[in-house]
């Protein structure tokens, strides 16, 4: 009888047993042998705090931005930590696919006088950055893709409206941005000219919109359907123009 009770108690105690916890470190040995000396621990923890501020400064500044202002404490933190975080390349907002997946931007450039023999009819006229067929491996393609996105981000219109010209603050920023954009354009054109061995025409900024599921699955549009692409204007006055169907050399992809 007694034996039975003991067995039942044992079984119950097994059921109510707390989950196994990994053995905790023997804290008394932390400062001995192969451990970090206390003075170094303190130094490292101090450096860790500074480093953490460096890591956090850019996302905090980035997130506290609005059309009116940036949160003053985060703006200050960002400015203070800028030399450290920028040089260490830890100054990122981490906006991966955020806030929403958006359209892609490409650079399309016609050759003025093609010297190389084209392999496809429309390759003689128009080239793309990035080009899925030409730029391989995928990482190389992605580098060119990032460049075309960067080029679009740095865009500054060649002309501005009369109304905008009255805004002196805007005009001073615009003049600087335009100079940088022109310089970037010249640099890209010179590089492309060197690689293809001929003059490069205008660099067109192409925007490829994202299709809806209805357009792809019901209407049968390919993801690179010409109806999704537009040439972005170089001034603030022009409207976007649809791209002629034979301009992009990529093969259509059917879902």
């Amino acid at each position: 009888m007694e034996l039975r009770i003991t067995r039942t108690t044992l079984e119950l105690s097994k059921l109510t047993e707390k989950p196994k916890i990994e053995p905790q470190p023997d804290l008394s040995t932390l400062n001995a042998g192969n451990c970090c000396p206390v003075w170094l621990q303190l130094v490292l923890l101090g450096l860790f705090v500074v480093h953490s501020l460096g890591v956090l400064s850019e996302p905090l500044r980035f997130f506290s931005r609005s059309d009116i202002r940036t949160g003053p404490e985060f703006a200050w933190l960002g400015e203070t930590m800028k030399p450290y975080s920028q040089w260490l390349y830890i100054n990122h907002g981490y906006f991966f696919f955020a806030p929403n997946p958006g359209p892609s931007h490409l650079i399309q450039y016609p050759l003025d006088a093609p010297t190389a023999q084209p392999t496809e009819p429309n390759q003689a006229k128009n080239h793309l950055l990035p080009d899925r067929e030409k730029h391989r491996p995928r990482l190389l393609y992605h580098r060119y893709f990032m460049l075309s996105e960067f080029y679009t981000n740095r865009f500054a219109p060649q002309q501005v409206s009369e109304e905008m010209k009255k805004d002196l603050e805007f005009m001073s920023t615009w003049a600087f941005d335009k100079e940088l954009y022109d310089q970037l354009q010249t640099s890209i054109k010179a590089s492309l000219k060197h690689s293809v061995g001929t003059e490069i025409g205008t660099l067109n900024r192409i925007e490829r919109e994202l299709p809806s599921s209805q357009q792809v699955l019901k209407d049968g549009w390919a993801l690179n359907d010409p109806r999704l692409t537009n040439v972005l204007p170089e001034t603030m006055i022009e409207a976007t123009t649809p791209l002629p169907p034979d301009v992009l050399p990529s093969k259509p992809i059917k879902p």
Binding site: A98, P99, N224, S250, I253
Partner: peptide, 28 residues
């Protein structure tokens, strides 16, 4: 911050972000 950034976008809330991610020709 990646998550907080997405919280600002309506496509991540209405559930269409996955579609628009796979529908990008350049990424696909």
């Amino acid at each position: 911050f990646g998550g907080l950034g997405k919280l600002r976008g309506e496509m991540w809330w209405d559930g269409s972000a996955m579609w628009y991610s796979v529908a990008s020709y350049e990424y696909q």
